[in-house]
Design a protein around this nucleic acid. Structure first.
Lengths: 243, 243
DNA sequence: TAGCTTCTTGTCACCCTGACAAGAAGGGTT
DNA sequence: AACCCTTCTTGTCAGGGTGACAAGAAGCTA
C-alpha cells in the first residue's frame, strides 16, 4: 500500500468555459475556432491551461474570459464540472475544470477584439450536433445548459442574462429561451413580483419599444427563490418546432 | 501571448470524499486520522492522490471509498467541487476533486477493516468547529452538507440514506436530520406518497419496532421530484437546540 | 383489558397556480 | 383626432397542493 518510491502522477490542468447569453431571444454559447492541434479548425469552448504553477483556478477562468472572449466581467461565474477522462486529450493526461458563465446580451459581438474566431452560436444547433465540437466539449455544453435550466428554477440566475435594469418581459424571455417553453405573461408578471428578493423596482424609469412603457427592475438581494419558479408546471405549452 | 518555450504547469491531483450517513437519527461524516505529514494526527476527509497516470477520477474516488472507508459500494456518489487554491497544501500545488457520497446506516461501523482510524463524526460537531480538520476540509464538509440539503428538495437523494427497503418514517428521519427540522408525519406521509416516482411499495412486507407495523417501500424510478419537497415551508418548527 | 406507541386515513381552510378577461398606456395610420 | 394595434398591468376565478389537526388502525407492554 505504500512504496517509498511511489510518486503521485502530475496532470495538466485546463480551464474551459461555457459562456451563455441571449441573442435575439435565443440562447447562444460562445465558441472558438481552434488554431492549433489537436482539433485544429474545429469549434471548441474558450479555455486553456493554467498560466503558471500558482495561478488560482477561478483566476484562470477569469483570465480566459478576458483573453479569449474579451469579457472583462460577467455577472455570473461558477464551477460546472470536472472532465478528466484519460484519453480525452491526445497530448496526455489533461483534467479540465469547466466553468459556467452567464453574460447579458452585449452590444459588440465578437468583433475587433483579441478574441479572433470567437462566435456566438445558437445552443440548439450545438446540442443537436449540427456543429462539431472538439474534445468532449459537447458534453460540457450539454451539462452547462442543463445547469442553467435547473438554476433558473431555484435561484435568481435569470437576472444574470439581463442588463443592469430590465423589464419583466425581458426576464420572461430569459426563462422562455433557456427552458424552451412559452409562459403566460400575466402569470409570470405576478409570480416574479411575489417572489421575495428576486427583483426590485429600479426607480420610476421606463423604456420600451412599441406598446405601453414597462416598469424597470434590477436584481434583488435574494439569490435563492422561495417559492421556486415551477418549470414542469408552466411547461405545458412547449415552444413550437423551428420553422 | 505564445512563447515557444512555455510549458503548462502540472499539478498533483487528489480526490477527497465527503461520506454522509445517518447514525441514531443524526447526520454523520466519515473522518480519518492522518498518519502522515502534513497535519499528522489531525482529522481529515478520506482521500488521496491518483494512483497512476491513467486512473479515472471517479474510479479513484471509488478506490479511496474502498481503501479508506471500507465501502465497496455506495448508493450515491457525485462530484462536489474542486478545491485547488494555491497554498492549500504545503507539499506543492495540489488540486483536490471533492466528491459527495451517501451511505445507509451500516451494521459494522469502522471496526476491523483496513480503514484504521476512520470514525463517523456528527456533522454538527464538525461544522461547529469542535473538531479541527486538516487543509480546507472544513469548507468541503460544509459544501457537502449544503449540497445534500439542497438535493433533498428536488431529487430522490434521501433514499440513498436508507436501506434497500424502508418505511416512510425512516425516510422522514432523513429529512429531519439533514435539514435540521421537524416535520409533521401525516403531511410528510401524504406528500411522499403523492410525489410520482419517488417511492414504490415493496410488497406487503412489514416490520417495525413498537407501534403499528409500517408499509415498506423502495426507491422509485424518478430521480427528480415534482413537485419538490418544500424546505423553507416545512421548516417552521425548527428542531430544538442540542441538550 | 387498558394504555401506549406508531402508522395511516381523513378533513378543512388557505395560498399558489393556471386560465383568462379587461383596462392602461403608448405608437402608427389615415 | 379617431381608430387600431401592441405591450404592460391589474384582476377574477376554479382547482390543486400544503399546513394544522382529528381520529381510526394495528401492534406491544403491563
Amino acid at each position: 500500500m505504500s512504496d517509498d518510491q511511489w510518486q503521485a502522477p502530475r496532470v495538466l490542468l485546463a480551464v474551459d468555459l461555457v459562456i451563455l447569453t441571449l441573442r435575439r431571444s435565443a440562447l447562444h454559447v460562445l465558441l472558438i475556432r481552434r488554431g492549433i492541434d489537436p482539433f485544429r479548425g474545429s469549434w471548441a469552448l474558450p479555455g486553456g491551461f493554467l498560466a503558471h504553477d500558482r495561478e488560482d483556478i477561478l483566476a484562470a477562468a477569469r483570465r480566459e474570459l478576458a483573453e479569449e472572449a474579451a469579457l472583462a466581467d460577467v455577472p455570473h461565474l461558477e464551477l460546472l464540472g470536472v472532465y478528466g477522462e484519460p484519453g480525452r486529450d491526445p497530448r496526455g493526461r489533461v483534467v479540465s475544470v469547466a466553468h459556467l458563465a452567464i453574460a447579458p446580451e452585449l452590444p459588440d459581438p465578437e468583433a475587433g477584439t483579441d478574441a479572433v474566431g470567437a462566435q456566438w452560436t445558437p445552443v440548439d444547433l450545438v446540442v443537436a450536433g449540427s456543429v462539431a465540437l472538439a474534445f468532449d466539449h459537447l458534453s460540457i455544453v450539454r451539462d452547462g445548459v442543463e445547469r442553467a435550466r435547473s438554476k433558473l428554477e431555484h435561484s435568481s440566475l435569470a437576472t444574470a442574462f439581463c442588463a443592469e435594469t430590465f423589464t419583466i418581459s425581458e426576464l420572461q424571455q430569459v426563462y422562455e429561451a433557456v427552458w424552451g417553453v412559452r409562459l403566460d405573461p400575466r402569470n409570470f408578471y405576478r409570480k416574479v413580483q411575489n417572489t421575495p428578493g428576486f427583483i426590485v423596482e429600479a426607480g420610476p424609469l421606463r423604456r420600451t419599444g412599441n406598446g405601453r412603457p414597462a416598469k424597470t427592475f434590477r436584481a434583488g438581494p435574494g439569490r435563492q427563490l422561495y417559492p421556486p419558479m415551477a418549470r414542469s408546471a408552466q411547461a405545458l405549452v412547449r415552444e413550437g418546432s423551428p420553422s
